[in-house]
């Protein structure tokens, strides 16, 4: 079963970090990704541009409206995701807990809806 692990964190911290520390985090993400590729749990992952670059699109009565940024002002914003495959929620949680972002932000684990249903 697939789970989407959404990584939320305070993105304002990133630019304030010294280069060496940024490199350390990047290396940790690299190692985590490599690890779950090796173990066969990896499906995909992306890092997102800052939340300030986001656009929100709605269509109502045929009219498209575009607004800036995430809807709510929150400290922690979506910064990236991993799509993983795991046998159950416990395994997914165990994997998600190793995402470096879980240590400074939070990771939301969402099961992917399966089409077939008994």
């Amino acid at each position: 079963m697939r789970y989407l692990c959404l990584i939320y964190s305070d993105e304002s911290q990133w630019p304030k970090m010294p280069k060496a520390e940024q490199d350390k985090w990047m290396a940790e993400y690299g190692a985590f990704t490599e690890g779950i590729k090796q173990s066969g749990h990896y499906v995909g992952s992306e890092r997102l541009e800052a939340a300030s670059t986001a656009s929100v699109v709605r269509q109502r009565n045929g009219k498209v409206s575009i607004t800036d940024g995430p809807f709510v002002e929150t400290k922690e914003t979506l910064g990236g995701f991993f799509m993983i495959t795991a046998k159950d929620l416990d395994e997914a949680i165990q994997l998600a807990s190793k995402i470096p972002g879980a240590r400074h932000g939070s990771v939301e684990v969402r099961p992917v809806m399966e089409i077939r249903r008994p």
Partner: peptide
């Protein structure tokens, strides 16, 4: 059912 919470006794670590 949907998040597949396992029907299992947790591992020693958990």
């Amino acid at each position: 059912r949907d998040a597949r919470i396992p029907y299992e006794v947790p591992t020693r670590a958990d």
